[in-house]
Design a protein around this nucleic acid. Structure first.
Lengths: 204, 204, 204, 204
DNA sequence: AATGAATGAGGGTTCATTCAT
DNA sequence: GATGAATGAACCCTCATTCAT
């Protein structure tokens, strides 16, 4: 694996663990056993690393969105997608937690970030539109979009705030997904499989 | 107004505007026209200021919660409370946006922050419990709590992410409230007044 | 003496001795026994120190110019002025030697520098105009101005290049002054006192 | 053209444009489209490039000096030589502008530089000696040498300071030459052709 | 209460230079 | 001859924090 990729991986790991503010360029370099000069040979600084991670996240979401367009054919697929989305979000969770660095850093970075947020919003609205076609939700478009926004916000917040920090991350993801499905529950004809499960999440 | 209070006010203002990371102790002191030494006479550092703001937020929420216990008697009151909560959150929005400083700063601060998050979660669950008594939601307690979590997460996220950054903050608050009420809509016998309004938010 | 002044003095000393490029902010601070932070408390960086030195040089020349306007009444005064000018230039010689830092540094610094050069040019032209009134040089204004430019250039170059580096600086100044007066010799009715001296400069 | 020559040419170009301090080895390599390793294959560093340029300048001046010895037969030739000298100086102007790098760099470089300055001084003195033979200047040798020094200093300074930065470089050279000839004017029996011209430099 | 000069650790960044390929 | 990743020293600068006054 090339040095560039190793830097990105290590950075994401460290950023997720300790927050972007707490991690200096030197910390990243040291954790990889490379010199600071080498790190700056590959990235012009911490912000450029963040930008690269943002681009990676962007790409992962775009890829997921394209698959959604093709493969979302049953309500069960919907749940799978929700989990996939949450998984991507969790993988890049430092990006969602560190609003400040993204909003008040380089102007270019802030702009990219806003674009990405808009994209996420669109994905969530299109997701519900798709679901509406599979099993009509029985609400006007405007209300459906508000519902999509709420879902997105809940999802983003679950990445930021970790309601149950003591659980392992996989369980957290499932709990988050459950929470989101609960919001959709009233509009669906029957309970989703995930919600119907008998407490599989508590035996950890 | 005492210097201590002026420092807290100015800090909150600056933190909200530019993020806690971008604001140094000197910046705060300069913006107030006082010396850095004087700032350190009142607070041992930036983190202590954050801790004080956290305590203020805590207090405001506790006060609100006590009022809720007494005054939440009709579904209409519920909306008012939601807005009040959002307003408090918006006033202290830097606290919700800067997860990193709170989670990875002084251990004491991180602990206080986690306690506060738990308190907010409790408030939201009690809020729904109250609402359930006023107009039965028709769902089991567990589902109601998940719903409360989702509401809370959406609310927190709306403080962090600003879906419509071009709108003024009052409108943003109303839009957030609408989003949250949409989530409750299926469980309520009739549309809430806020949702029933004919597009009052667009003519600004 | 205040720290600010001590920094300027030490910087000028070091810049003159080893060149501005070779002297880092840390070197200056260390030579004064103060911390780098303290240096940056007084000046935002090396360029700001250079700018302050430039302003000091500017002031010294302006003061000299005002005196010239009042006190230049005999050809003998002229010589004294020439020496005073050379002395000021020698005191700030690093400014004349390090064209690059001044021309390619901060735009503001470069502009100030160009203004100063224009001022020096004016002083030299006014100096000759004055001299012309005291003892007519017998040449048209245009030629007189070219002569003034040549004098100025010779003077600047003598600050930059040190033709006799092994001599002490006072002797160098006198030799420079002699060189400049030689240029004026053909236009003056009688030898200037400095030129008439019988080799006083060689017995060192 | 070999890589070595291309490096020297590009370096001189960049050094003249932006100053030697502002140009790093990487900048030179990049401007040529070669790798930094390749640059270091040809030169051990920036200082060695400067040394090579210094040697080139040395060679150009020595060649000119030899020609002078043979071809300077009329006062008109004198003007031509002056211009040739100025042209060489202008071509290598970065060397004269960046005293600091040359004086405070490698000891070997500084020594070479001092030798070169002495050579230039000799050339200027021999130039005047030659001129004296063609048209007697009527001054003792000592005064003639001081005159030669002044001429040299003016010439060097005109390379460093650019009195009229807005003019193109060819015009600047002609103006410099005029300035220098003005200094000789009183000693010459008749106006030199360049000075006799009716303002040919202003209609550009 | 308040000042403001001073500290020093640490972060970001550059760059001359090397070396395996 | 040439590449380009890698090194490490040094530099510039910020900032939380202290302390004599």
């Amino acid at each position: 694996m090339g040095t560039r990729e190793r830097i990105l991986d290590a950075s994401l790991e460290l950023f997720n663990q300790e927050g972007t503010a707490a991690i200096s360029a030197l910390t990243i370099a040291t954790s990889l056993g490379i010199s600071p000069g080498n790190l700056y040979y590959h990235f012009r600084g911490k912000e450029e690393i963040l930008a690269a991670l943002l681009a990676e996240c962007d790409l992962a979401l775009a890829r997921l969105y394209r698959r959604m367009d093709q493969e979302l054919n049953t309500p069960v697929d919907f749940e799978a997608f929700l989990l996939s989305l949450l998984r991507v979000g969790h993988h890049f969770r430092c990006l969602f937690r560190d609003q400040e660095a993204l909003r008040f850093g380089q102007p270019g970075l802030a702009q990219t970030w806003r674009r990405q947020l808009r994209q996420i919003r669109q994905i969530s609205q299109l997701l519900l539109k798709r679901l509406d076609r599979l099993t009509p939700l029985g609400i006007p478009e405007e209300e459906r979009n508000r519902l999509a926004d709420s879902l997105m916000l809940s999802a983003l917040a679950s990445l930021c705030f970790e309601l149950d920090p003591e659980r392992d991350s996989e369980t957290q993801l499932l709990l988050s997904a459950r929470c989101l499905l609960t919001l959709l529950q009233p509009y669906l004809p029957e309970p989703t499989p995930l919600l119907a499960q008998q407490e599989p999440l508590s035996n950890h």
